[in-house]
């Protein structure tokens, strides 16, 4: 294995790592927007809205992300829609994120004391104002540590996109390995790359949790 080759392989793995980060960001962003909708629907005053959303959450949480990806990537083309690996991976991961974060955010919203809602109500604030000016700002503080912790799960789960041929970190590693047959070295390298992405997030999440434990807004 020549020096120039090694650099080329490393660059290829680096590019895969970037796509892992990219796919994670897409999943977090799109999934996060959906999660907000999920959380708000779960506390809707309309019973049927709550029920439909509960069913959605059960469906997504009860299905492996891998199966969601297969459905998108192999299932939809058989119905006449062709889907790129990036799109299939993004959509299935976003759905996964929306269900998990949606439930976690719902819990955060409901963790804000009921009395806060009442106090805002008695000051004549509309339902939307109560939500955006009183409840959500407090819920965000409650939800931030677990959300940052969940980002670690998203990053690791993007590796599943390798099975639909999306070239993220794991798939990049497989391709390089098929050429140079050094699985131990390559997968060790990949593990280190994942770790270097996830570890800072874990530390950050723990710091946020410790800070939240102090419970001070000042």
């Amino acid at each position: 294995m020549g020096q120039s080759f090694a650099v080329g392989y490393l660059l290829f793995l680096g590019k895969g790592a970037l796509w892992t980060a990219g796919l994670s960001s897409i999943a977090l962003l799109c999934g996060g927007i959906l999660a907000l909708v999920v959380a708000l629907c779960r506390i809707s005053p309309q019973k049927w809205v709550r029920l439909v959303m509960a069913l959605y959450i059960q469906l997504i949480q009860g299905t492996p992300v891998l199966v969601l990806m297969f459905l998108m990537y192999f299932g939809l083309p058989s119905l006449g829609w062709s889907v790129s690996p990036l799109l299939a991976a993004s959509v299935s991961l976003s759905l996964y994120v929306s269900a998990y974060l949606g439930e976690s955010w719902r819990a955060a919203i409901q963790a804000v004391p009921r009395a806060q809602w009442e106090a805002a109500e008695c000051l004549a604030l509309s339902r939307t104002q109560r939500m955006t000016k009183v409840i959500l700002p407090q819920a965000v503080r409650i939800a931030t540590p677990p959300t940052v912790g969940f980002m670690v799960q998203i990053i690791k789960n993007t590796s599943l996109a390798s099975v639909v041929g999306f070239i993220e970190l794991v798939r990049a590693g497989q391709i390089v390995n098929n050429t140079i047959f050094q699985p131990f070295l390559i997968y060790l390298l990949i593990a280190m790359l994942y770790f270097s992405m996830c570890y800072p997030l874990s530390i950050f999440s723990r710091k946020l949790e410790a800070k939240a434990g102090e419970k001070s807004y000042a």
Partner: peptide
């Protein structure tokens, strides 16, 4: 609610807002 003001046993101030912002919220928003 514009005609009635109510004060609770447990104060129920908004913890994420300063004292001044607590008082200003309803006049500005409502």
């Amino acid at each position: 609610r514009l005609d009635i003001g109510i004060v609770f046993q447990s104060y129920n101030l908004f913890p994420h807002l300063t004292i001044e912002e607590n008082v200003m919220l309803a006049p500005t928003a409502v």
